[in-house]
Simulated scan of single mutants.
Amino acid sequence: MTTLRHTDARADTTTGLLLGCGVLAGPLYLVTGFAQAFTREGFDLTRHPFSFLSLGEGGWLQIANFVLCGLLFLAAAIGLRRTGGVGSAVPVLIGLFAVGMIGGGVFVADPAFGFPAGAPEGQPAELSWHGVLHGVAFFAAFPALVAAFFVLARKLTGPWARASAAAGVLSLAPMPFMGTEVGTVLLYGAATVAWLWVSAVLAKLRSES
C-alpha cells in the first residue's frame, strides 16, 4: 500500500508539473510578444500581428517564443489527458493548438505591410511555402483553442463554464474583420483573452488534480 501511495503521489506531481507548463505558457507568450511589439522599430500593433516579430533582426526571439510556448501547451495537453477530468476532446484540441503554435514558429510569415524595413507596403505579390504553412498553422491552432473553450463550457460548472463560453465568443470577434486594421487590433484583444483564459483554466484544473 505504501508503494502504491508513493506511485500515486509521483503521478500526481508529474500531472501537476505538466499542467503548470500551460499555466506559465499563456502569460509568457503575451509578455514576450508585447515587449517586442513596443520595442521593435517599425512594428505597429494596428497593422502587424505578432507573427511579423519573427522577421528581421531579432526575429529569433519570437520564433523561440512560439516554439517554447507551444511545447509548454503540449505538455499541458498531456497533463489534461492524464487527469481525465475534462473528457478526451479538450486534450486533443489543446494539443492541436500547441502543435499549431510550434508550426507558427518553425514556418515564418512573409514580410508585408512595411515590416520589416523594405517589405512591401501591402500583401506580398506571392506567398512563399513557409508563409503558406504559417497560415495553415494559425488556422489550425486558433480555432482549436476556441473549440476547446466551448467544450470546456460544457465540462465545467458555474462561473467557469459561463466564462469559458464568453472567452470562446470573444475569441471569434476578429474573424469578420481579418485583413483590416480593426481586425488586427481585435485579434490582439482576442489573443490576450484566449491565452490568459486557457492558462487560468489549467491553473484551476491543476489545483484540483
Score class of each variant (00 low, 15 high):
residue 5 R to V: 14
residue 8 D to W: 01
residue 9 A to D: 14
residue 15 T to P: 14
residue 16 G to A: 13
residue 18 L to E: 06
residue 20 G to D: 14
residue 25 A to Y: 09
residue 27 P to H: 09
residue 31 V to N: 05
residue 32 T to E: 07
residue 33 G to R: 02
residue 33 G to A: 13
residue 43 F to V: 02
residue 43 F to H: 12
residue 44 D to L: 11
residue 46 T to I: 04
residue 48 H to K: 12
residue 50 F to T: 01
residue 54 S to P: 02
residue 56 G to Q: 06
residue 58 G to V: 10
residue 59 G to V: 01
residue 61 L to I: 01
residue 63 I to S: 06
residue 66 F to S: 07
residue 71 L to M: 13
residue 75 A to H: 01
residue 77 A to R: 10
residue 78 I to A: 10
residue 83 T to A: 11
residue 85 G to H: 06
residue 85 G to F: 09
residue 90 V to F: 01
residue 93 L to E: 00
residue 95 G to F: 09
residue 97 F to E: 07
residue 100 G to K: 00
residue 105 G to K: 00
residue 108 V to F: 02
residue 108 V to M: 13
residue 111 P to D: 03
residue 112 A to G: 15
residue 114 G to A: 12
residue 114 G to H: 11
residue 115 F to L: 08
residue 117 A to P: 11
residue 118 G to V: 05
residue 127 L to D: 03
residue 129 W to P: 00
residue 130 H to C: 04
residue 133 L to K: 13
residue 134 H to D: 12
residue 134 H to M: 09
residue 137 A to I: 02
residue 152 L to Y: 09
residue 158 G to R: 11
residue 162 R to E: 12
residue 164 S to T: 03
residue 169 V to E: 09
residue 170 L to A: 05
residue 175 M to D: 13
residue 177 F to L: 13
residue 183 G to R: 09
residue 190 A to R: 00
residue 190 A to K: 01
residue 200 A to C: 14
residue 202 L to D: 12
residue 202 L to S: 14
residue 207 S to Y: 06
residue 209 S to W: 11
